[in-house]
């Protein structure tokens, strides 16, 4: 039997409306996150306000006075260190894969770099704690303690105050390894889209390979690459498990880039499950601030790319 017009309409509508509802689920999730974080943090918000909370470095369980100053600074600093390393590295990797790499190695090298992103965060944490931190302690920190730390005025920024190699800089470096595949793959795709004619006409003028990359390919791919870098920054801000192992979790003033410190995510990992009352509310407030920071960064990336292309 041929299906009647009516049953057809019903089937048509079942798919259509379940599809619509599913798509709007995204909106529900985002609204749910914002709403629940707001509700859970309202005690902390009303007690500490905004400015006091984000600048306060107090974390006093007895007096129940909490501030997100250090955690926010820690999150931002580790993410910035990570980006400063990962952005040039990622673009360099992409340039190598697109412009230099012999064909037979291309697949191997680009998949290897991509696979770095497939390793779970927690593995980076263990590797960072047990292997990479001691390595940093024996190399970079040893070198810095006899050179940079001896410099006048800025020397204290490179003082080694904690043993084990863990801390802000090590966290930033491990974070950079975790986000570099993303930047590399965005940059690679952007570079591959550069029209051949454009590059050829540049070579036609007698330019060197690097000059053609610098003057034609990279400017052509610039928007996409910057967009990717901003997204990577957003991801670095929210990275959790790796940081929880290697940041050191010291809620003390930051004096040197080798110091142990805290980030929003490391504080959440360490305190959330045991917290209650004002402390839990403050943790939610911190989570809300991180969410907003992350969300704004990602929206900025979206808008930047949309505006420029």
């Amino acid at each position: 039997m041929k299906e009647s017009f009516k049953t057809l309409k019903v089937k048509e509508n079942i798919l259509k409306y379940s599809a619509i509802i599913s798509a709007f689920f995204i909106l529900v999730i985002i609204a749910g996150i914002i709403l629940s974080l707001l509700i859970q943090s309202k005690d902390a918000i009303s007690k500490f306000g905004f400015i006091d909370f984000i600048f306060s470095t107090s974390w006093d369980y007895g007096e129940e006075i909490f501030g997100a100053g250090r955690a926010l600074l820690g999150s931002i600093l580790t993410a910035l260190i990570a980006i400063l390393i990962a952005a040039p590295m990622g673009v360099g990797m992409a340039v190598f894969i697109v412009e230099i790499c012999p064909k037979f190695l291309k697949g191997f090298i680009s998949s290897s770099i991509e696979l770095l992103a497939a390793i779970p965060s927690i593995i980076y944490g263990m590797w960072g704690l047990f292997i990479f931190a001691p390595f940093i302690e024996n190399t970079l920190q040893k070198w810095a303690s006899t050179t940079l730390a001896e410099l006048p005025i800025i020397g204290s920024f490179f003082q080694i105050n904690y043993a084990g190699g863990i801390g802000l800089l090590t966290s930033g470096i491990v974070l950079s390894i975790m986000i570099v595949p993303f930047i590399a793959s965005i940059a690679r795709e952007a570079l591959m889209r550069v029209p051949k004619e454009l590059k050829e006409s540049c070579y036609g003028l007698g330019t060197e390979k690097w000059e053609a990359i610098r003057d034609v390919s990279l400017p052509y791919a610039k928007t996409a690459i910057w967009g990717g870098i901003i997204i990577a920054l957003g991801r670095a801000l929210g990275e959790t498990m790796a940081i929880a192992y290697i940041i050191g979790n010291m809620n003390l003033p930051l004096t040197s880039i080798f110091d142990s410190y805290v980030t929003v995510t490391s504080v959440l990992v360490n305190e959330f499950n045991e917290a209650d009352g004002m402390q839990l509310s403050s943790l939610y407030y911190m989570a809300l601030l991180l969410f907003i920071l992350n969300f704004l960064t990602l929206i900025a990336a979206k808008l930047y790319v949309a505006r420029r292309s």
Partner: peptide
């Protein structure tokens, strides 16, 4: 709009999703 929102959601820190689900 929804597609962009989904894109942004992909990068929401997963620990924040943990705190959200904890509360509900």
């Amino acid at each position: 709009f929804l597609s962009s929102l989904a894109d942004v959601s992909i990068s929401i820190p997963t620990i924040i999703i943990g705190t959200f689900i904890y509360s509900i």
